[in-house]
Design a protein around this nucleic acid. Sequence first.
DNA 1: AATCATTTCAACCGCCTGGTG
DNA 2: TCACCAGGCGGTTGAAATGAT
Length: 221
Amino acid sequence: MGRSPCCEKQHTNKGAWTKEEDQRLINYIKLHGEGGWRSLPNAAGLLRCGKSCRLRWINYLRPDLKRGNFTTEENELIVNLHSLLGNKWSLIAAKLPGRTDNEIKNYWNTHIKRKLYSQGIDPRTHRPLINKGSTCLTREVEDSNSNSSGSCLTTEVEENPELNLNLELSIGLHPHKPTTKSPGGGGGGSCFSPILSTTDRVRNGNFLLQPHLFTCYTSST
DNA sequence: AATCATTTCAACCGCCTGGTG
DNA sequence: TCACCAGGCGGTTGAAATGAT
């Protein structure tokens, strides 16, 4: 038995949402709240798939969304969390109020990933790329104001086997951000690579992320 | 000004998970 | 225990915007 389609595709619109559709969705959710996504399109008079409605609301229409560029702090936090969680965008988004998983995912793919690569860091593992040839990684392109200590990025990365962390652990991110900002703000902010031992990672089933254990290795936007 | 290349990001798709009967 | 359903998630796509020539 196949799965039943989430909606009757022949009767649904696709593609960009119109203002009118947005308004209908907003009005409906204001009246009835979120949820019941499958029945929502009919009830709201929308020729859309329920999933599409949910996505539109979550990623674009929700009133508590923060639009605009990511701040240095957010940037740091994303890299930081990604090093711990991997592509668990929803978990990462949960730590960034007003940001959506989709937004963070996009930002990661278009900005952070490239930046890490340019700095010789494997965005997947958050470790230096095994790079053919060169020893220390050149900070090309960006970071012209590289006060960035030029320290070879490999230095502090421990031979930590895998970042395969237990994602069920609750992550107790310290609210105050690790203040290893480069002096004068020059070179932008910093991103952090957790250098954690296994024992640091887990204490009594809780994840303790300790700011001082982070190493600065990227610059901000 | 026109054309082509590249980048960005909203939206879609299909799979997975948890709840329920 | 199993099957079904709805919601949620991550990967991917493609149109629009922007930049380069």
